[in-house]
Amino acid sequence: MRGAPAAAQRACARRGDEFQNVPAGSSVPVSVYPQGGDRYEIIVASGHYRSRCSVTGNGNVMSMDPY
């Protein structure tokens, strides 16, 4: 997926696993929306569930919400 740094994508995928209580490595980023500056909103898929991850480019997850 393009548009967000790899560190941000990895951080959101890990947090998605925890947030949706699925096995490690189950969550994957599916879309990204740049929010300006060094912030991104990444939609993470965990099986049938989706989450909205707000993250900085270096992988600091600010929030995770159901989508």
Rank of each mutant, 00 (worst) to 15 (best):
S26V: 07
R15H: 15
G47E: 04
A4E: 05
V55C: 02
F19D: 04
Y49W: 12
G57K: 01
R39D: 05
V32F: 01
S46F: 06
P66D: 03
D65M: 13
C53G: 03
D17Q: 14
E41L: 14
R14C: 10
N60S: 13
A45H: 07
N21M: 12
V61K: 00
S31E: 08
S26E: 12
V55K: 00
S27Q: 03
P66Q: 02
R50A: 08
F19L: 13
D65K: 12
S51Q: 06
Y40S: 02
S63P: 02
C53M: 04
N58M: 05
S54A: 13
R15Q: 15
M62D: 04
V55Q: 00
G36A: 12
A11F: 08
M1Q: 09
A6S: 15
G59S: 04
N21S: 15
R2D: 06
E18R: 15
V30A: 09
R50T: 10
Y33P: 00
M1D: 09
S26W: 06
F19W: 11
V55R: 00
V55D: 00
D65I: 08
P23M: 09
P34N: 09
R50M: 11
C12G: 05
A6T: 14
P66R: 03
Y33H: 10
N58T: 06
Y33W: 06
S27N: 04
G16K: 01
I42L: 08
P34I: 08
G16Q: 01
G57D: 00
P29N: 07
G47H: 08
G25C: 15
D65W: 05
P23R: 10
G36V: 09
V61N: 00
A6M: 11
G3V: 13
M1E: 07
R39C: 02
Y67P: 00
H48A: 14
G59C: 04
A8G: 06
G36S: 09
S31D: 09
D17F: 09
V61R: 02
V28Y: 11
A7T: 07
P29W: 02
G57W: 03
D65Y: 05
Q35K: 15
G3N: 12
V55L: 04
H48R: 14
R15V: 14
R39Y: 09
G47F: 06
G47L: 06
Q20D: 14
